[in-house]
Design a protein around this nucleic acid. Structure first.
Lengths: 206, 206
DNA sequence: CCGGAGATCAACCATTCGGATGATGCATGG
DNA sequence: CCATGCATCATCCGAATGGTTGATCTCCGG
């Protein structure tokens, strides 16, 4: 029997997760907490768990889900499955970087969730199909690396500057700025400055 | 008995909401959908419901929750309770502007949720305590501001969409989008979409 | 009932962007 | 030494954008 702990500040989400977990014959929810602090507190004392389902974004909390993940994995060696709502690349990388065993979006099918919990309990890495696809796309397009100059340009674009303004600001010609932007769009697979900025933000490169 | 329809693209959230609703003696879930399109489809045919619990952000969907809200309220006169995760001022205004009867955050206590559903079924306006406080703060500081529609446009601009894409997304003409954008630039004192987005981000309106 | 605000749409026009192509100079690393 | 990557600049052109003016329509509050 897999003992699962739920850590999410949304009662509704906790209820939903509990329903899914308890509906599986081989797992059960043994504890619920709504803040990262409570989670650590609980682990400190009676804490026994095989898997922890953790929301990356603890509402108000001073402690982020990523930080909590790092602490838990480092201190208790309990697999952490990050289950959050919106999965941006930056979020995913942060979670995995912090040592999360898996990462799932809340809109993942319930079966996938159950499967991920089993994998996590078994010590395997469990990433949602969405996430895998995302990471794959990342690998396939490793060119996510923009040069320093390009990033400089992109930042100015994100600040709302026009090509002309950027050119003046960087002491180069407008042609150069456009050239950089063209490279950026190629690299990011975008087709407009706006889309490039949006995607770059999403990936936390700004 | 209050018939409730759940519209949310997250299976887990739906399960949680269903559990909460079905746990109340005076209400029941009669249908679940995961996209706005499905919701409208259902209402079109067999649709009978006293209250609709709607997620403002339908994941991928081309149709936003706000748009769906407008359509539902306008066409079927069914009270819509918007239940979403992150409540920004703009979200709230958009929802209310679109005709939502109530607005609740997913981290609201379950009793509050049940109460809101009853209020909505009774035709009353039901706003979560959080939201009410938020709106109050808003009134006190009317400082900046864009209409709900304008914010909706600005968000899409921030997401890198072109005017044409925005127009299609909101079911209006490009002229309207440009009109909103012009207004936005006037209000914010900016001269381009990019600058408007940058400034709006700065002020946390996104 | 009138006025104002917001949402909608239209047409026009100057400016800006994005996309394609091509070229030069300068490092760096194999 | 040379391929490669980066930064620089230019030109051309179609598409997108911004600015403006003007016009309904609806809803709300005085």
């Amino acid at each position: 029997m897999i003992d699962v702990v739920l850590a999410d500040d949304h009662p509704v989400v906790r209820t939903g997760l509990r329903a899914v977990v308890d509906d599986q014959p081989d797992m059960q929810v043994v504890h619920e907490v709504s803040t990262a602090e409570d989670l650590l507190q609980w682990l400190e004392h009676e804490g026994r768990a095989d898997v922890i389902l953790l929301d990356l974004r603890f509402g108000d909390g001073r402690m982020s889900g990523a930080t909590a993940t790092g602490t838990i994995v480092g201190r208790y060696r309990i697999p952490v499955l990050v289950v959050t709502t919106y999965g941006t690349d930056a979020d995913i990388l942060a979670a995995i970087g912090a040592g999360a065993t898996g990462y799932l979006l809340k809109d993942a099918p319930t079966e996938e969730l159950a499967r991920a919990i089993r994998s996590a309990a078994a010590g395997e890495v469990a990433l949602g199909a969405d996430v895998q696809r995302r990471l794959l796309g990342r690998v396939r397009a490793p060119a996510e690396h923009l040069s320093a100059r390009e990033l400089e340009v992109l930042r100015l674009v994100a600040a709302g500057r026009s090509n002309d303004a950027i050119a003046r600001e960087l002491f180069v010609s407008v042609a150069t700025v456009k050239s950089h932007l063209a490279h950026i769009n190629t690299r990011l697979g975008t087709t407009s400055r706006g889309a490039a900025v949006a995607l770059a933000r999403d990936r936390g490169m700004l």
